[in-house]
Structures are given as C-alpha cells and as structure tokens.
Design a protein around this nucleic acid. Structure first.
Lengths: 159, 159
DNA sequence: GCTGAAAATTATGCATT
DNA sequence: AATGCATAATTTTCAGC
C-alpha cells in the first residue's frame, strides 16, 4: 500500500493540519521555516497518496447525541452484505467493524437519550433481517478517537 | 451545550468540507449559490461553536498499521487517572473510552504485525501499574469511523 | 523535489442593511 | 445574519534549477 515515504518535515506539517486543516500553507511555512510552495507540495502529496485526509469532524455531543453505546451483533452469513449496507445507511451508527468471529459485527451508536437507544435495540436492529443482537454496553465517555491518532515520529523518516 | 442552531445551508457546507476541509469558501459559495462571505461566516460560526472541527485524519493502514484490536481493561480505581494518561501517551492507542463498569476501560490499538500486538498484551500493558487485561478481540476491518459520521439533516433546521 | 515571480484567486476588515 | 467593497494575503501557474 505504501508508495511514498514521508519525513519529519511532513510530520510537522501534519501536526499543524491536525489543529486546523484550513491553516494557510504560507503560515505553516513561516512557522516551520519552509518555502510556501514546499509546504503545499507536501500537503498535496500526502493527500494524493492517501496517507491523510483533510476533513470535517462533526461533534455528536454538540448536536445532542449524548448517549453512546457499543453493540455486538451476529449476522446470518447470507445476509451479511445487505446488513452492512443497512447499518451504514443509519445515521445512528458512528462506527462499524467486522468482529473476530466470521459472523460478528461491532457497531457504535449515538442517541439523544436512552429511550432512543432502547428503541433501537428492541425494534431498529431486529427489523434488519439476519441481525441478532448479542449484547451491548454503554460508553460513558470517549477520550480519544481516530481523528486524534497519529503515527509516532519514527514512521516519518526518509528511506 | 448547544448554543446556536444550524440550518440546511450549514449542512450542505459541512458536506463539502467533509470531502475536502481546504475547499475554498468561494468555491463552496459558487457550488451552492451563496455569497462567499456567508459561507466563511457560517464555517467560522460552526467551528467556534465547537460543532465541527476541521482536521487531518491519518490513515493507519498507509503507515503499515494493518493490525487492529480491541482490548478490554480493568483498572484499579486509585490508578485510573495515571493509567489514562499512560494510555493516551501511547501512539498505539487509537481509541480510548470508559467502559460500562466503574473500573472498565476499552481501547483500540494499531500495530504493524501480530508480534507487536502480542508483545503489547504481554508486556506493554502489564507494565502500567493498576492495569489488568480482561480480554481482547482482533478487528479484521473497520467500515466506518467517527470521521465519516454526520447527524441526519433533521438536526439542521432553524429554530 | 525545491524555489521564484507574476497572475489569479481567496480571505479579511469594515461598513451597511 | 447577510453582503458589498477595498485591501491584504494566499494560492496557482509557469518556469528554472
């Protein structure tokens, strides 16, 4: 998958972009002592390589989605694709991953109150053919998510 | 928490920013038939309100972190704060949340190979005083994460 | 892959509605 | 809140190294 290799200058640029994806390349260049064009070239290269994505993260809490839960599902194998599509179409689902077993799926869901979660567990999920709820757990608070993740600096060294 | 209320125009702007956080306001304005100034004002308002964050998502796979696992921990209560700080300082930890029990923490970790994961489970985690590994599960593939989440359009309606 | 300079585009500050 | 305008800053294009 990896084609380019990035160095510590790229790493510093990344850190700036993580704080503010719209920070002007000229400003980053000044701060890091680089040429403006160099900064823009490196940003473009990282984006085009697929190493990073400059995007907009919406805060669920701000919009009232204060309840988070992890739900563990078992899915009939012949319905797997349809189930995944159904789950991805649901705005409540903020995370979806395959689980360890061949029939397992894990999801994380967001709701405005416990009643909506209860309804989802009792009616929303069972309404999808082939889905079986194995269990769930409330998530009182999330302290880090993928949007705050970054590889260690050791991964940014020219070959 | 919610102070402002956003409308469907904001929602459309969000969708543009989710594709490319650096998309010029002028371009978004042209596409949506809005004034440039209006687009910038609305972006600024959403960011300042804390409803959205414009950031840089790093792809773990690109950097060789092809192994993902969920690990369930139990933490001695008097060590909780120190444990959280230790975990947040680890670049392997891409997700950290409180679990349902008063002593439970869930983490998601990324590694370049199974050996590193094994080493982390055997040595890395036990080296943190007060941490007990309750179990773990490999995550074969993640299909959606918080960076792709967005509230439904119903949440964008003027009061 | 880095940098320079002019042209085009975009962002900012201020004022008006 | 939205917008027009003048000014400032940034990005882009095209080029050479």
């Amino acid at each position: 998958m990896r084609r380019h290799s990035f160095d510590l200058v790229d790493y510093q640029i990344l850190q700036e972009l993580q704080v503010d994806a719209r920070k002007p390349a000229a400003e980053i260049a000044r701060k890091l002592g680089l040429n403006e064009r160099t900064v823009r070239n490196r940003i473009d290269r990282m984006v085009e390589a697929g190493a990073i994505r400059l995007t907009c993260i919406v805060d669920p809490n701000y919009f009232g989605y204060v309840i988070t839960a992890d739900i563990f599902l078992e899915v009939d194998l012949d319905r797997e694709q349809a189930v995944i599509e159904a789950l991805l179409a649901m705005p409540e689902v903020s995370y979806l991953a395959f689980g360890q077993g061949t029939q397992d799926l894990s999801i994380e869901v967001r709701f405005k109150n416990n009643e909506q979660l209860r309804e989802f567990l009792r009616s929303g999920l069972p309404a999808i053919p082939g889905v079986h709820v194995k269990g769930y757990a409330l998530v009182p608070r999330i302290l880090r998510n993928i949007d705050e993740w970054m590889p260690p600096p050791e991964d940014f060294t020219a070959e």
